[in-house]
Simulated scan of single mutants.
Amino acid sequence: MPLTPLDIHNKEFSRRLRGYDEDEVNEFLDQVIKDYEALIRENKELQNGMLGLQERLNHFSNIEETLSKTIIVAQEAADEVRNNAKKEAQLIIKEAEKNADRIINESLNKSRKVALEVEELKKQASIYRARFRTLVEAQLELLSQDGWDSLDSQGREADRELLRG
């Protein structure tokens, strides 16, 4: 058990002949008591300070651990968001590629239909021109025949008879 200031104060020494000066020993013991009490107080204060520092250290260690866990969770969340964004971007790209292919195919089909319609219209125009040319040529030939004048005279006589009649 550790020595206390009271133990020092109550310590009795046996007396012998030619021993130490009792007053000098008592003064020294009083000084030892004061110094020992001061050391005990200082030790208590240091222990209390150490306990406070230990509590603060534990508090900051808990904060550090919480922050570390939070950073890890945040990093995992950021990784998950990044991965989800990549997946969504890939889906959007695939969808856009499908739509582009569909649009291209529809455009090609429409282009083919228009080309076929143009060809059909060209054929019809060519046929129409050929028929019209034939008709015009037949009409010109009819006009250039000698019988046209005789038809014209007969037509006038028929008109006269109608008027008479």
Rank of each mutant, 00 (worst) to 15 (best):
M1V: 05
L3Q: 11
P5W: 00
D7F: 00
I8A: 04
H9N: 08
H9K: 15
K11I: 03
F13Q: 02
S14V: 06
L17A: 14
Y20S: 12
D23I: 05
D23S: 12
E24C: 01
V25Q: 02
Q31G: 07
I33N: 00
K34H: 08
Y36L: 08
E37M: 08
I40F: 02
I40S: 03
N43F: 03
K44H: 06
N48Q: 12
G49I: 08
L51F: 02
L53I: 04
R56M: 06
H59E: 08
H59Y: 06
F60H: 08
N62H: 01
I63H: 02
E65N: 04
L67A: 02
K69F: 02
T70P: 00
V73W: 00
A74M: 03
Q75P: 00
A77H: 06
A78P: 00
A78Q: 06
D79N: 11
V81T: 01
R82A: 14
N83G: 07
N84M: 10
A89F: 01
Q90W: 11
L91V: 06
L91D: 10
I93W: 02
K94T: 07
E95Y: 02
E97N: 10
R102K: 04
R102T: 09
N105E: 14
N105P: 00
K110C: 09
K113P: 05
V114E: 15
L116A: 15
E117T: 04
E117N: 09
E120L: 14
K123R: 14
K123F: 08
A125F: 11
S126F: 10
I127E: 13
I127C: 05
R129C: 10
R129A: 14
A130M: 05
R131E: 15
R133Y: 04
R133L: 13
R133P: 00
T134N: 14
T134F: 10
L135V: 03
V136W: 10
Q139A: 11
L140S: 13
E141N: 15
E141V: 01
W148N: 05
S150P: 01
L151I: 02
L151N: 09
Q154E: 15
E157C: 11
E157N: 13
A158H: 12
A158G: 14
D159P: 02
D159E: 15
D159Y: 15
E161P: 01
L162T: 09
L163S: 13
G165H: 13
G165I: 14
